[in-house]
Each structure stands twice: as structure tokens, then as C-alpha cells.
Lab assay of single mutants.
Amino acid sequence: NKFNKEMRNAYWEILLLPNLNEQQKRAFIRSLYDDPSQSANLLAEAKKLNDAQA
């Protein structure tokens, strides 16, 4: 399933972002589970926040 693969990839990438705190990571991951079809958008948002907090 395409969404499962995308979601899994986004999950691990979000977990490994160094500048997000645990609460932020949990919020993004919760959103991933709520709507896996938004994986790419959520990952992009997480990366943007990660860069902003660098």
C-alpha cells in the first residue's frame, strides 16, 4: 500500500529531525496516523519547522 510506505518513511524522517522536541514529533506523528494521505505534506511541514528551529 502506497500510503503505508509513505507514512512509514515520513514517520522515521520526522523521528530523526534533530531540532524538533518530543512534543512536536508526537503531534506530527499523531497527524500522520489520523490522515496517512497527508504524509508528504506533514513531512514538509515538519522539515520546515525543523529548519526554523535550527
Rank of each mutant, 00 (worst) to 15 (best):
Y11V: 13
A10E: 01
A44I: 11
N21F: 15
L42Q: 04
S37K: 05
M7S: 04
K48Q: 14
R8H: 05
N4K: 03
W12M: 06
A10L: 05
W12S: 14
E6Y: 02
L17I: 03
N21Y: 15
N50R: 02
F28N: 01
A10K: 03
A52E: 09
K2Q: 15
L32P: 00
F3S: 03
K2L: 10
E22I: 05
Q24N: 10
A54L: 07
N19F: 08
I14Y: 00
Y33W: 05
R30G: 09
A52G: 12
L32K: 00
R8T: 12
A40T: 07
Y33K: 04
N21K: 07
K48N: 13
S31T: 09
N4S: 03
Q53E: 13
K2W: 06
K25M: 05
E13Y: 05
A44K: 12
Y11I: 15
P36K: 05
R26A: 07
L42Y: 09
S39K: 10
D34Y: 09
I14A: 01
L49G: 02
L43E: 03
E6V: 01
D51K: 06
P18K: 13
L43F: 04
D35N: 10
Q23W: 14
A40F: 10
Q53S: 11
N21W: 14
Q38V: 09
M7T: 08
A10G: 02
N4W: 10
F28Q: 01
Y11Q: 08
A40L: 13
Q53I: 13
L32D: 00
A27H: 15
Q24L: 07
A27P: 03
Q53R: 01
K48G: 13
E45W: 14
E22Y: 08
F3L: 08
Y11R: 15
K25Q: 04
P18F: 04
N19T: 08
P18W: 02
S31W: 12
A27L: 07
L49E: 09
L42I: 15
Q24P: 00
F3D: 06
S31E: 12
P18A: 08
Q24E: 09
E6D: 07
N1V: 04
N19M: 06
L32M: 07
E45Y: 13
Q53N: 09
N50L: 01
S31V: 10
K25I: 05
F3E: 07
K25H: 02
Y11H: 09
L15I: 13
E6S: 01
E22L: 06
N1Y: 00
A40Y: 13
P36Q: 06
Q38S: 11
L49I: 11
P36N: 05
L20M: 05
N19K: 06
N9V: 11
A52Y: 15
K25E: 01
E45S: 11
F3Q: 05
